[in-house]
């Protein structure tokens, strides 16, 4: 298990990239062969919250876990920031991040220390975070400094807009994390926890790190969402419960077993984002969005399973 992603992971990222490029070209053609700097900026801006939370989900899924609480975590951090920005912008960001880290820590304690099944633990914290967001911000509101919104959505030179820079930074930072000892151990834990433990990997610490890191990335996603929409909303994160898992799955990350790459996840998130734009330019009602998201999620996993079985059968036949 080296620092580089395994062959299967690279192959997965390749598949996800091809999927994105194909959809991108279709989108490009539907728009009449038009792609401006504005389109680039909009795509990155729309994709960034999902990219962030999906990268968080990626860490948890690598440990054979799942985190249903990341979406509501986004609502909490966005709500906290929107309520405190007027007092102190830096304080608001710090407070949102501390809350996210606290939420992640709670998940980690439940899953790692108390050994609750991840799905039950995060289902419970999902409900708790939804509640917290509603308690601190019962209806959409709060304020965000206009300058901050303008800079983070609209800033930077035409060909290097700030949302693109942030997106690339997030991808590079996650990619780098996967080459550190933590990243290597993460893959080892997901691949075979028992083997990892007996070869000296601090399994509990790695899993702790995964849940906290995931919540922090979700917190950042919620923060960006609040800044981009210029207010906080207590339910804005709910749709990301499914989307974060879907992006990870589209990135061909195995739900069981430590394989997958951050690049694939970023491509998965971009794919889901561009589908919205595709529907708009194909003149289909937004009602089709959830149908298509669901079909793609099930279709991609189903296709991979059939392909795997086919390959196994072919190999079996040869032997």
């Amino acid at each position: 298990m080296g620092p580089r992603p395994s062959g299967a992971a690279r192959q997965g990222a390749f598949g996800a990239t091809v999927t994105f490029i194909v959809l991108f070209v279709v989108d490009f053609l539907l728009k009449g062969g038009h792609f401006s700097a504005f389109d680039l900026k909009t795509l990155c801006m729309n994709a960034l919250p999902l990219v962030l939370v999906a990268l968080g989900q990626f860490f948890v899924v690598l440990t054979n876990g799942i985190d249903l609480s990341l979406g509501p975590m986004m609502s909490v951090s966005g709500a906290i920031a929107a309520l405190t920005f007027s007092t102190s912008p830096i304080g608001a960001v710090l407070l949102a991040m501390v809350a996210a880290a606290g939420g992640g820590l709670a998940n980690a304690i439940l899953v790692v220390r108390l050994r609750l099944p991840p799905i039950l633990a995060t289902l419970a914290t999902m409900s708790i975070f939804q509640g917290v967001a509603l308690v601190i911000l019962p209806s959409p509101g709060g304020t965000v400094p206009a300058g901050l919104t303008a800079f983070l959505t609209n800033g930077g030179p035409a060909l290097l807009p700030v949302p693109l820079v942030l997106l690339v930074c997030a991808a590079l930072a996650t990619g780098w994390t996967m080459t550190t000892r933590f990243g290597i151990w993460l893959r080892a834990v997901g691949g075979d926890e028992g083997a990892a433990r007996s070869s000296g990997v601090a399994v509990s610490a790695v899993k702790f790190g995964a849940y906290v890191l995931a919540a922090l990335l979700a917190g950042l996603g919620g923060l960006y969402l609040a800044i981009a929409t210029a207010n906080g909303s207590p339910t804005i994160g709910d749709s990301f419960i499914l989307l974060s898992i879907a992006a990870v799955v589209l990135g061909r990350v195995a739900i069981v077993g430590g394989r997958g790459s951050p690049l694939g996840v970023v491509m998965g998130a971009l794919t889901l984002t561009i589908i919205g734009s595709l529907l708009y330019f194909a003149n289909l009602s937004s009602f089709y969005q959830s149908l298509i998201n669901g079909l793609i999620l099930v279709g991609v996993v189903g296709f991979d399973m059939i392909r795997k079985r086919f390959l196994l059968a072919v190999r079996g036949g040869r032997q």
Binding site: I66, I119, L242, I245, A246, V249, I255, V256, F287, Y288, Q289, S290, L291, I292, N293, G294, L295, L297, V298, V301, G302, M305, I306
Partner: peptide, 18 residues
């Protein structure tokens, strides 16, 4: 197809919503 129940039923939820 051996799809994990979480992924399958979350996806189906979206399909039914659509």
């Amino acid at each position: 197809l051996n799809i994990s129940p979480i992924v399958m039923t979350l996806g189906m939820n979206n399909i039914m919503q659509g």
